[in-house]
């Protein structure tokens, strides 16, 4: 077992454990923190699988953007400040049934396919190639994604603003 493999196992175990933790904890804030753990672990997995750019984006966007948004959401939607936002569970039995079944189906399907390829390094500089492909082959989706982000930003700002609602 190489070091890389060990790191892969560790990251994967962390990610899985964090995901299960999200499922089990009651405190929303704890769940948010566990989500950060999960996302960063996944970023480590992405690095190992030769997707450095994705890993960076993951950390920047998710850990830096989405998580901040979520934490703000938690803060703004807890009625009494200082008291932790605790959630209760519902539909536990059907939900666990659905989850277990879906996981089982996925695992069974994956196990039937031959994906046994050892991870190896891609030829050339991946980051360089990513930038070239992004600016050349995928420039249109890239621009559309930018516009999408802009629209989402404006929409989120307008939706959340109390100004608009007061005007109504």
């Amino acid at each position: 077992m190489s070091l890389i493999s060990l790191a892969l196992y560790i990251f994967e175990a962390l990610a899985g454990a964090a995901a299960l933790g999200i499922l089990l904890v009651r405190n929303v804030f704890h769940a948010a923190l566990l989500l950060i753990v999960c996302l960063i672990s996944l970023a480590g997995v992405f690095v190992i699988y030769n997707a450095e750019f994705i890993a960076v984006t993951q950390i920047l966007v998710y850990a830096g953007g989405v998580l901040v948004l979520i934490v703000f959401g938690i803060m703004l939607s807890s009625r009494i400040a200082g008291k932790p936002l605790v959630v209760t569970n519902q539909y536990v039995l059907p939900a666990s049934l659905a989850g277990i079944l879906s996981a089982g189906i996925l695992i069974k399907l994956f196990s039937e396919q031959p994906f046994a390829q050892q991870p190896g390094a891609l030829p050339g500089n991946p980051m360089n190639q990513t930038g070239i492909a992004l600016m050349r082959d995928y420039v249109l989706p890239f621009e559309i994604a930018g516009i999408l982000l802009l629209i989402a930003l404006i929409g989120a700002a307008v939706t959340a603003s109390s100004f608009y609602s007061k005007k109504q």
Binding site: A31, A32, V92, F115
Partner: peptide, 29 residues
């Protein structure tokens, strides 16, 4: 592959979170 097992577990955990948690933020998570 163990990575695929992880992805399955992640998906199932996310799905269960969406259904089970009585909070909109948890649904987003």
């Amino acid at each position: 592959e163990h990575t695929l097992i992880l992805s399955s577990i992640l998906f199932a955990a996310g799905l269960m979170t969406v259904i089970v948690k009585r909070n909109a933020i948890m649904v987003l998570i």
